Amino acid sequence: MATTKLILTQDVANLGNAGEVVEVRSGYGRNYLIPRGFATKWTKGAQKQIDQIQAARRRHEIASIDDARAVRDTLQGAPFVTVSGKVGATGRLFGGVSAAQIADAVKNDLGQTIDRRRVIIDAPIKTVGDYTVTVNLHSEVSAKLKVRVVATK
C-alpha cells in the first residue's frame, strides 16, 4: 500500500483542514483529492504555499475560544437576523438565500463579523419564513442562528 504526501487546499471531512500536510493512499490522492482541487502534491518548495494558507486561515478565524463564545452568545441572544429577497407570485424566492447573505445580515443587524464559509445551511432556503442555521465559530464552538427571510417590496 503506497502512500502519498499531499497539501490540503480545502477542509476535507475526516482528513484535515486547509494547509495541513497529510499522508493518504496513492489512489485516494490521485483519483479523488487532486482532481477535485482538494489537495496538491507536497514538495519541499510547497512550504511557502502552506504558510500562505495558514496565514489566511488565521485572518478569518476567531482568535480564542472565549472570543468565539462571546460571539456565540450574541448570535444566539438575538431574536433573528433578517434577509430579504425578491419573491415570485407563488411565494418562492428567485434563487435561494446564501451563506454570504446571512453573513452580511449578521454584520448589518448585530455588528458581528462571521466568515461566510462557516455558515452551514442544512436545507436550501427558497421560501419566505423563519429558519435556523449553524455557524461554526471555532473548532469547539458553534452557534444556532435564527434567520427570518422576508420579501422585498
Score class of each variant (00 low, 15 high):
Thr3Ala: 12
Thr3Gly: 09
Thr4Ile: 15
Thr4Trp: 04
Ile7Met: 15
Leu8Cys: 11
Leu8Ser: 09
Thr9Cys: 13
Asp11Tyr: 09
Asp11Gln: 10
Ala13Met: 10
Asn17Asp: 07
Ala18Gln: 07
Ala18Ser: 09
Gly19Ser: 05
Glu20Lys: 07
Val21Tyr: 00
Val22Asp: 00
Glu23Asn: 14
Val24Asp: 00
Arg25Cys: 02
Gly27Lys: 09
Tyr28Ala: 04
Gly29Ile: 05
Arg30Thr: 06
Gly37His: 09
Gly37Ile: 08
Ala39Gln: 05
Thr40Cys: 11
Lys41Met: 12
Lys41Gln: 08
Trp42Ala: 11
Thr43Met: 06
Lys44Asn: 06
Ile50Asn: 00
Gln52Leu: 13
Gln52Asp: 11
Ile53Pro: 01
Gln54Ile: 12
Arg58His: 09
Arg59Glu: 14
Arg59Tyr: 04
Ile62Lys: 05
Ser64Asn: 07
Ser64Phe: 07
Ile65Lys: 15
Ala68Phe: 10
Val71Arg: 07
Arg72Gly: 00
Arg72Phe: 02
Thr74Asp: 01
Gln76Arg: 14
Ala78Val: 12
Phe80Lys: 04
Val81Trp: 00
Thr82Glu: 12
Val83Glu: 01
Gly85Asp: 08
Val87Ser: 04
Gly88Ile: 10
Leu93Ala: 06
Ser98His: 10
Ala99Cys: 14
Ala103Lys: 11
Asp104Gly: 08
Asp104Gln: 14
Asp104His: 11
Ala105Asn: 02
Asn108Tyr: 05
Leu110Arg: 11
Ile114Met: 10
Arg116Phe: 04
Arg118Thr: 13
Ile120His: 14
Ile120Met: 13
Asp122Phe: 08
Asp122Ser: 15
Asp122Gln: 15
Ala123Asp: 05
Ala123Asn: 10
Ile125Gln: 00
Val128Thr: 09
Gly129Glu: 09
Thr132His: 05
Leu137Tyr: 05
Ala143Gln: 04
Leu145Lys: 05
Val149Ala: 08
Val149Trp: 02
Val150Tyr: 00
Thr152Asn: 15
Thr152Trp: 06
